[in-house]
């Protein structure tokens, strides 16, 4: 076996030394950079025993932070999903002026630092801001409350779903929608019976990524939430607060919860990738594998 391998002319970069060195360096860097911190989080979280861990978690402020994080995700993710589908649909199925500009605008949150987004929201909705006085008179509180947190999270995660869908929908073209419409289907019917089944895995993949980012967002939310303990603290903010209180175990306990949420997300993502999402091609069909074709004559 190994002799047969040696007989083959080696491909570029296929010498055993290079291969081993590359794999080893990736593993070492990965261990230090990614794996070690995760282990430390779990280790620290339980360093004073499970009792202390449970106590920290059941602390009302921590519970509220968890609640706030989940609530934010429950609002921001569906809205961004709808936005992402609408944007991807508009860009891939219609021709209009400013299409390229729209593509760039959708990507802006990826390139802007979240803290800049947070500050920008301060200037739009803050008391000294654009709509601040009007909102204040109307008694609507956006900043330092749930609406501000949701808005900031939505800004940061706006591109996720659209970015997953656009390449796929571009590759699929408009034929299927045109076929459905020519057969008499309405717009909604076309979307639900023809478009959605073809994009569902990519869509779920985008939603998972969006959700992970919403739950983990720190910078933008930190600026607009005001960091009020037990009121406007999301889980990431709460972790920082606990850490500054020298409550290391508490911080790590809370962090472990966020980590578990993230790991669940990653597992969901891996499962989705197996279903063919995020690969750009046509998704796998929910059908048994094709039997050998019965010849090509009609």
């Amino acid at each position: 076996m190994s002799r047969a391998r040696h007989a083959k002319p080696p491909r570029v970069g296929d010498s055993p030394a290079i291969r081993r060195a590359l794999i080893a360096s990736v593993l070492v860097v990965g261990a230090f950079l990614i794996f070690a911190p995760l282990v430390v989080i779990l280790y620290q979280a339980f360093s004073k025993g499970f009792g202390f861990f449970a106590e920290t978690i059941s602390d009302p402020d921590t519970r509220h932070a968890i609640f706030l994080t989940v609530a934010t995700a429950l609002i921001a993710v569906p809205i961004n999903t709808a936005f992402g589908i609408a944007a991807a649909w508009a860009i891939t199925k219609f021709d209009f002026r400013g299409k390229r500009l729209l593509l760039v605008v959708i990507e802006i949150p990826f390139s802007i630092s979240p803290i800049v987004a947070g500050v920008a929201y301060l200037f739009v909705y803050g008391l000294q801001g654009l709509f601040g006085p009007a909102l204040d008179t109307a008694g609507i509180k956006i900043l330092f409350a749930l609406p501000g947190i949701v808005l900031a999270s939505m800004f940061v995660t706006a591109p996720f779903v659209a970015r997953e869908l656009i390449p796929l929908m571009q590759a699929q073209g408009r034929d299927l929608e045109e076929a459905a419409t020519s057969l008499g289907a309405s717009g909604w019917r076309t979307f639900f019976s023809v478009t959605l089944p073809n994009i569902r895995w990519a869509l779920l993949y985008g939603v998972v990524l969006c959700n992970a980012r919403v739950m983990g967002e720190f910078g933008a939310v930190s600026v607009v939430s005001g960091n009020i303990r037990g009121q406007t603290n999301t889980l990431p903010l709460h972790i920082e607060l606990l850490y500054h209180d020298y409550n290391t175990v508490g911080a790590f306990a809370a962090a472990s919860i966020l980590t578990v949420l993230a790991i669940v997300t990653i597992i969901a993502k891996v499962l989705l990738e197996r279903q063919g999402a995020g690969r750009g091609g046509r998704p796998a069909l929910a059908a048994p594998k094709a039997p050998p074709s019965q010849g090509h004559a009609p």
Binding site: D175, E178, A180, L183, A185
Partner: peptide, 25 residues
């Protein structure tokens, strides 16, 4: 009735499902 160059059959529906689509909607 429009027949597309690359057929544009709905990949997630069976042959019968494809043919029935227009009547269903």
């Amino acid at each position: 009735g429009f027949v597309f160059q690359h057929y544009a059959l709905f990949p997630q529906m069976t042959v019968a499902g494809n043919i029935a689509f227009g009547m269903k909607v």
